[in-house]
Protein backbone atom coordinates (compact mmCIF):
# COMPACT_ATOMS: atom_id res chain seq x y z
CA UNK A 1 0.00 0.00 0.00
CA UNK A 2 1.21 3.49 -0.81
CA UNK A 3 2.22 5.93 1.92
CA UNK A 4 -0.62 7.65 3.79
CA UNK A 5 -2.03 10.65 1.97
CA UNK A 6 -1.40 13.98 3.63
CA UNK A 7 -3.30 16.72 1.86
CA UNK A 8 -4.47 19.60 3.95
CA UNK A 9 -8.19 20.22 3.56
CA UNK A 10 -9.32 23.46 5.19
CA UNK A 11 -11.95 22.76 7.82
CA UNK A 12 -15.30 24.29 6.87
CA UNK A 13 -17.86 22.66 9.15
CA UNK A 14 -21.43 23.79 8.64
CA UNK A 15 -23.57 24.60 11.65
CA UNK A 16 -26.75 22.70 12.40
CA UNK A 17 -29.27 23.07 9.60
CA UNK A 18 -26.97 25.13 7.39
CA UNK A 19 -27.60 24.36 3.74
CA UNK A 20 -28.18 25.97 0.37
CA UNK A 21 -30.93 23.49 -0.42
CA UNK A 22 -34.16 25.16 -1.39
CA UNK A 23 -36.35 22.05 -1.38
CA UNK A 24 -38.17 20.88 1.79
CA UNK A 25 -35.25 18.67 2.91
CA UNK A 26 -36.75 18.36 6.38
CA UNK A 27 -39.95 16.66 5.14
CA UNK A 28 -38.69 13.08 4.72
CA UNK A 29 -36.82 12.85 8.06
CA UNK A 30 -39.86 14.39 9.77
CA UNK A 31 -42.19 11.78 8.29
CA UNK A 32 -39.72 9.02 9.27
CA UNK A 33 -39.53 10.42 12.81
CA UNK A 34 -43.30 10.61 13.19
CA UNK A 35 -44.13 7.20 11.69
CA UNK A 36 -41.32 5.32 13.45
CA UNK A 37 -42.11 7.00 16.78
CA UNK A 38 -45.78 6.20 16.40
CA UNK A 39 -45.02 2.57 15.62
CA UNK A 40 -42.63 2.20 18.56
CA UNK A 41 -45.10 3.77 21.00
CA UNK A 42 -48.01 1.72 19.69
CA UNK A 43 -46.11 -1.59 19.57
CA UNK A 44 -44.80 -1.15 23.13
CA UNK A 45 -48.31 -0.31 24.33
CA UNK A 46 -49.82 -3.26 22.47
CA UNK A 47 -47.09 -5.65 23.61
CA UNK A 48 -47.61 -4.74 27.25
CA UNK A 49 -51.38 -5.19 27.17
CA UNK A 50 -51.09 -8.97 27.40
CA UNK A 51 -54.70 -9.43 26.30
CA UNK A 52 -56.95 -9.08 23.23
CA UNK A 53 -54.18 -10.38 20.98
CA UNK A 54 -56.23 -13.36 19.81
CA UNK A 55 -59.60 -13.52 18.21
CA UNK A 56 -60.98 -16.76 16.87
CA UNK A 57 -58.19 -18.32 14.77
CA UNK A 58 -56.30 -15.04 14.46
CA UNK A 59 -53.14 -14.19 16.40
CA UNK A 60 -51.55 -10.75 16.39
CA UNK A 61 -48.06 -10.80 14.80
CA UNK A 62 -46.75 -8.84 17.77
CA UNK A 63 -47.43 -11.92 19.92
CA UNK A 64 -46.32 -14.59 17.47
CA UNK A 65 -45.17 -17.18 18.29
CA UNK A 66 -47.12 -17.37 21.54
CA UNK A 67 -44.68 -19.45 23.54
CA UNK A 68 -46.23 -18.86 26.97
CA UNK A 69 -49.40 -17.17 28.08
CA UNK A 70 -52.87 -18.10 26.92
CA UNK A 71 -54.58 -21.46 26.58
CA UNK A 72 -53.35 -21.85 23.00
CA UNK A 73 -49.71 -21.09 23.85
CA UNK A 74 -47.14 -23.62 22.70
CA UNK A 75 -45.48 -24.17 26.08
CA UNK A 76 -48.29 -23.40 28.54
CA UNK A 77 -49.24 -20.47 30.73
CA UNK A 78 -47.11 -17.79 32.33
CA UNK A 79 -43.73 -19.37 33.16
CA UNK A 80 -42.96 -19.96 36.81
CA UNK A 81 -39.50 -18.46 36.45
CA UNK A 82 -40.86 -15.09 35.36
CA UNK A 83 -39.93 -12.49 38.05
CA UNK A 84 -43.05 -11.45 39.94
CA UNK A 85 -41.98 -7.79 39.97
CA UNK A 86 -41.68 -7.68 36.17
CA UNK A 87 -44.70 -6.88 34.05
CA UNK A 88 -45.81 -9.95 32.11
CA UNK A 89 -46.93 -10.24 28.53
CA UNK A 90 -46.37 -13.07 26.05
CA UNK A 91 -45.08 -10.51 23.53
CA UNK A 92 -42.07 -9.64 25.67
CA UNK A 93 -40.57 -13.07 25.02
CA UNK A 94 -40.78 -12.80 21.24
CA UNK A 95 -40.91 -9.18 20.15
CA UNK A 96 -37.21 -8.46 20.75
CA UNK A 97 -36.18 -10.51 17.72
CA UNK A 98 -38.18 -8.71 14.99
CA UNK A 99 -37.43 -5.43 16.78
CA UNK A 100 -33.72 -6.27 16.58
CA UNK A 101 -34.05 -7.07 12.89
CA UNK A 102 -35.57 -3.64 12.21
CA UNK A 103 -33.21 -1.70 14.46
CA UNK A 104 -30.10 -3.19 12.85
CA UNK A 105 -31.53 -3.21 9.30
CA UNK A 106 -29.32 -1.32 6.86
CA UNK A 107 -32.26 0.66 5.49
CA UNK A 108 -33.65 1.69 8.86
CA UNK A 109 -30.20 2.58 10.16
CA UNK A 110 -29.76 5.18 7.45
CA UNK A 111 -33.30 6.44 8.00
CA UNK A 112 -33.20 6.80 11.77
CA UNK A 113 -29.66 8.17 11.87
CA UNK A 114 -31.09 11.05 9.88
CA UNK A 115 -34.46 11.38 11.56
CA UNK A 116 -33.52 10.80 15.20
CA UNK A 117 -29.83 11.71 15.43
CA UNK A 118 -29.60 14.31 12.65
CA UNK A 119 -26.45 12.56 11.55
CA UNK A 120 -26.93 14.19 9.04
CA UNK A 121 -30.45 15.71 9.21
CA UNK A 122 -30.56 15.34 5.43
CA UNK A 123 -28.07 15.17 2.60
CA UNK A 124 -25.88 18.29 2.33
CA UNK A 125 -27.30 19.78 5.53
CA UNK A 126 -25.21 20.83 8.55
CA UNK A 127 -25.18 18.66 11.67
CA UNK A 128 -25.57 19.50 15.35
CA UNK A 129 -22.37 17.69 16.45
CA UNK A 130 -18.77 17.99 15.33
CA UNK A 131 -17.57 14.66 16.70
CA UNK A 132 -18.40 11.50 14.78
CA UNK A 133 -17.48 7.85 15.20
CA UNK A 134 -20.00 6.24 12.90
CA UNK A 135 -20.29 2.47 13.06
CA UNK A 136 -16.57 2.18 13.60
CA UNK A 137 -16.63 1.81 17.38
CA UNK A 138 -18.95 1.03 20.29
CA UNK A 139 -21.92 1.29 20.46
CA UNK A 140 -22.84 1.37 16.78
CA UNK A 141 -20.29 -1.26 15.84
CA UNK A 142 -22.85 -3.62 17.39
CA UNK A 143 -24.99 -3.09 14.29
CA UNK A 144 -22.83 -5.78 12.71
CA UNK A 145 -24.96 -8.34 14.57
CA UNK A 146 -27.69 -7.75 11.97
CA UNK A 147 -27.31 -11.11 10.21
CA UNK A 148 -28.13 -12.99 13.41
CA UNK A 149 -31.41 -11.10 13.69
CA UNK A 150 -31.96 -11.92 10.03
CA UNK A 151 -31.67 -15.65 10.86
CA UNK A 152 -34.34 -15.17 13.52
CA UNK A 153 -36.43 -13.12 11.08
CA UNK A 154 -36.44 -16.00 8.59
CA UNK A 155 -37.43 -18.37 11.41
CA UNK A 156 -40.29 -16.05 12.37
CA UNK A 157 -41.65 -16.27 8.84
CA UNK A 158 -42.38 -19.95 9.50
CA UNK A 159 -44.30 -19.00 12.64
CA UNK A 160 -46.27 -16.41 10.67
CA UNK A 161 -46.92 -18.99 7.96
CA UNK A 162 -48.29 -21.24 10.66
CA UNK A 163 -50.45 -18.38 11.98
CA UNK A 164 -51.78 -17.60 8.49
CA UNK A 165 -52.68 -21.27 8.00
CA UNK A 166 -54.36 -21.42 11.40
CA UNK A 167 -56.25 -18.27 10.46
CA UNK A 168 -58.08 -20.29 7.81
CA UNK A 169 -59.60 -22.76 10.27
CA UNK A 170 -62.68 -21.57 12.16
CA UNK A 171 -64.40 -23.34 15.02
CA UNK A 172 -67.87 -24.44 13.99
CA UNK A 173 -69.95 -24.72 17.18
CA UNK A 174 -72.59 -26.76 15.37
CA UNK A 175 -70.22 -29.62 14.55
CA UNK A 176 -67.78 -29.00 17.39
CA UNK A 177 -64.61 -28.94 15.33
CA UNK A 178 -62.74 -26.56 13.05
CA UNK A 179 -63.68 -26.08 9.42
CA UNK A 180 -61.83 -24.45 6.58
CA UNK A 181 -62.91 -20.89 5.84
CA UNK A 182 -61.84 -17.43 4.89
CA UNK A 183 -62.44 -14.26 6.81
CA UNK A 184 -61.18 -10.74 6.27
CA UNK A 185 -58.80 -11.42 9.15
CA UNK A 186 -57.43 -14.44 7.27
CA UNK A 187 -56.57 -12.18 4.35
CA UNK A 188 -55.02 -9.64 6.72
CA UNK A 189 -52.75 -12.34 8.19
CA UNK A 190 -51.77 -13.58 4.71
CA UNK A 191 -50.96 -10.08 3.45
CA UNK A 192 -48.93 -9.50 6.61
CA UNK A 193 -46.95 -12.67 5.89
CA UNK A 194 -46.36 -11.65 2.27
CA UNK A 195 -45.14 -8.18 3.20
CA UNK A 196 -42.86 -9.44 5.96
CA UNK A 197 -41.48 -12.08 3.59
CA UNK A 198 -40.76 -9.43 0.97
CA UNK A 199 -38.96 -7.37 3.58
CA UNK A 200 -36.95 -10.28 4.98
CA UNK A 201 -36.01 -11.81 1.62
CA UNK A 202 -34.63 -8.46 0.49
CA UNK A 203 -32.38 -8.15 3.56
CA UNK A 204 -28.85 -7.06 2.61
CA UNK A 205 -27.31 -9.66 4.90
CA UNK A 206 -29.44 -12.43 3.43
CA UNK A 207 -28.49 -11.27 -0.05
CA UNK A 208 -24.83 -11.45 0.92
CA UNK A 209 -25.04 -14.83 2.57
CA UNK A 210 -27.06 -16.60 -0.12
CA UNK A 211 -24.79 -15.49 -2.93
CA UNK A 212 -23.24 -12.06 -2.56
CA UNK A 213 -20.16 -13.36 -0.81
CA UNK A 214 -19.30 -15.59 -3.77
CA UNK A 215 -16.31 -14.38 -5.77
CA UNK A 216 -17.32 -16.09 -9.00
CA UNK A 217 -21.01 -16.55 -9.76
CA UNK A 218 -20.15 -18.80 -12.67
CA UNK A 219 -18.76 -21.39 -10.26
CA UNK A 220 -21.92 -21.37 -8.09
CA UNK A 221 -24.96 -21.05 -10.39
CA UNK A 222 -27.50 -21.90 -7.67
CA UNK A 223 -26.15 -19.23 -5.35
CA UNK A 224 -26.03 -16.80 -8.26
CA UNK A 225 -29.72 -17.46 -8.86
CA UNK A 226 -30.49 -17.00 -5.15
CA UNK A 227 -28.52 -13.75 -5.20
CA UNK A 228 -30.63 -12.61 -8.14
CA UNK A 229 -33.84 -13.40 -6.26
CA UNK A 230 -32.68 -11.59 -3.11
CA UNK A 231 -31.56 -8.64 -5.24
CA UNK A 232 -35.01 -8.42 -6.82
CA UNK A 233 -36.55 -7.98 -3.36
CA UNK A 234 -33.65 -5.78 -2.24
CA UNK A 235 -34.27 -3.20 -4.98
CA UNK A 236 -37.49 -2.20 -3.18
CA UNK A 237 -36.24 -2.88 0.34
CA UNK A 238 -37.37 0.52 1.59
CA UNK A 239 -40.89 0.01 0.24
CA UNK A 240 -41.12 -3.49 1.74
CA UNK A 241 -39.78 -2.14 5.04
CA UNK A 242 -42.44 0.57 5.40
CA UNK A 243 -45.33 -1.48 4.07
CA UNK A 244 -44.57 -4.41 6.34
CA UNK A 245 -44.04 -2.16 9.36
CA UNK A 246 -47.36 -0.38 8.90
CA UNK A 247 -49.19 -3.61 8.14
CA UNK A 248 -47.90 -5.33 11.27
CA UNK A 249 -49.44 -2.51 13.29
CA UNK A 250 -52.66 -2.71 11.27
CA UNK A 251 -52.85 -6.49 11.77
CA UNK A 252 -52.52 -6.08 15.52
CA UNK A 253 -55.16 -3.35 15.47
CA UNK A 254 -57.49 -5.57 13.42
CA UNK A 255 -57.17 -8.53 15.78
CA UNK A 256 -57.42 -6.28 18.85
CA UNK A 257 -60.55 -4.51 17.65
CA UNK A 258 -62.17 -7.82 16.72
CA UNK A 259 -61.27 -9.23 20.14
CA UNK A 260 -62.78 -6.23 21.91
CA UNK A 261 -65.91 -6.41 19.80
CA UNK A 262 -65.47 -3.01 18.15
CA UNK A 263 -64.97 -4.53 14.71
CA UNK A 264 -66.76 -7.55 13.31
CA UNK A 265 -64.73 -9.98 11.26
CA UNK A 266 -66.59 -10.52 7.99
CA UNK A 267 -66.57 -14.17 6.99
CA UNK A 268 -66.27 -14.65 3.23
CA UNK A 269 -67.03 -18.38 3.31
Amino acid sequence: MAAPVRIEIPSRPAHFGQTSRTDPWWATPTVVFVVLSAFVVYSIWAALQGQDYRWGPYLSPLYSPELFGGPQAWLGGKPMWWPHWLIWSPAILVLWAPAGLRVTCYYYRGAYYKAFWADPPSCAVGEPRQSYRGENSFPLIMQNIHRYFMYLGVLYLFFLLHDAWEGLWFLNPAVGHRVFGLGVGSIVLIVDLILLSGYTFGCHSLRHLVGGSVKQFSACPVRARLFGCASAFNRRHMVWAWMSLCFVAFTDIYVRLCATGIWTDWRIF
Binding site: P120, G134, E135
Partner: peptide
Protein backbone atom coordinates in the same frame (compact mmCIF):
# COMPACT_ATOMS: atom_id res chain seq x y z
CA UNK B 1 -8.72 0.01 9.09
CA UNK B 2 -7.06 2.22 6.45
CA UNK B 3 -10.22 2.94 4.47
CA UNK B 4 -12.55 3.25 7.47
CA UNK B 5 -15.63 1.59 6.00
CA UNK B 6 -17.17 1.59 9.48
CA UNK B 7 -17.57 5.36 9.28
CA UNK B 8 -20.24 4.99 6.61
CA UNK B 9 -23.64 5.10 8.29
CA UNK B 10 -25.60 4.25 5.15
CA UNK B 11 -27.52 7.46 4.66
CA UNK B 12 -27.49 6.82 0.90
CA UNK B 13 -26.73 10.45 0.05
CA UNK B 14 -23.97 9.21 -2.27
CA UNK B 15 -26.41 6.99 -4.16
CA UNK B 16 -28.89 9.85 -4.47
CA UNK B 17 -26.44 12.20 -6.19
Amino acid sequence: HAHGIGYCNITKCCTNV
